[in-house]
Design a binder for these strands. Sequence first.
DNA 1: TCTGAAAAATTTCAACT
DNA 2: AGTTGAAATTTTTCAGA
Lengths: 186, 186
Amino acid sequence: MVKAPPRATAAILAGAMRFFRAPHYDKPDMDLDRFDRLLLNLVQQDSMQTAEQLAEHVGLSPSAIQRRLKRMREQGVIVRDVAVVDPRAVGRPTFFVVSLEIERERPELLAQLREWLTKRAEIQQVFYVTGQNDFVLIVTAPDTEAFDAMMSQLMQENPNVHRFTTNVVLGLVKQGLTIPIPPANA
Amino acid sequence: MVKAPPRATAAILAGAMRFFRAPHYDKPDMDLDRFDRLLLNLVQQDSMQTAEQLAEHVGLSPSAIQRRLKRMREQGVIVRDVAVVDPRAVGRPTFFVVSLEIERERPELLAQLREWLTKRAEIQQVFYVTGQNDFVLIVTAPDTEAFDAMMSQLMQENPNVHRFTTNVVLGLVKQGLTIPIPPANA
DNA sequence: TCTGAAAAATTTCAACT
DNA sequence: AGTTGAAATTTTTCAGA
């Protein structure tokens, strides 16, 4: 039998790795009981609540809450905790929804493109999708010129991108990363 | 037991309200100095760092850090703090990018549709965009059937939605709400 | 508005049910 | 696993520059 690895660090790294792997990668299903699920729904709304506040909602002691949250962070169920900034408070950046159409004949360039997209901070989100448009991006830029400049660079440095279509976001109706978690396992 | 902590409940609510207002609403520009901006970039990556850790990066005392973060949360610059959950750890939900085409002749139904979209927890994000497709949605569902059911309901209850196109997300390459904040004011 | 120290609250940890 | 209670850490408050 193998010795137990340095527990916390290994678990955190594994969590981070899993998050960036292709989604078809087989992640063993975590078994989350109804308390974990309740907790996840709560901290997805507000991660700054104290363990005591959460304990009241969930019906456990603060210690139990802390232990569960710590475990889920180590397992990678909770990937990270972030502050959400109001775009209008920081220079009112413009948002764009961009669809990229990719040349499929050169699969070796795909990894390079994914890396390119991942590195750019202005690109908030990247979805690899079915259909003729292979990637959908959510991009934020201080203005249209900055966006145009970025897209020119994208086209220059990634020859497998055939074309793209841009939709300017006129209104952010709703934004979040919340995943609704049903009480029982699906 | 301790009495309810003096958390800035009112401020959090105000922040949330601002976040969901129409984007053309005139929010006065906050003046953020270089320390605020640095701080925002840091807490967008990880909001669980202690004030002391942040203080080292920024070059201020922990007290100054706390005061600035508190102020920005009250002002609504920081809208909220959330835990990000790995989709694969919670029932492997499927993601969809949906484009809605709206009938423009009946503007009174638009507000109703916005409300409908905002209320549904499965709809993570809603962008109101230029072009023939008026809304772009990011939707998460436990499976395709659940997604189909939701879209049927959407079409039934919102007669001003003419048609929609769906792209199934094959891979979440990158997901986040981070807005890159340049050192100086734009 | 910052720093630095005191006060208060929260989180962590050990022992036990 | 959960709970309790004490120790350690962090956050909040406040005086002084």
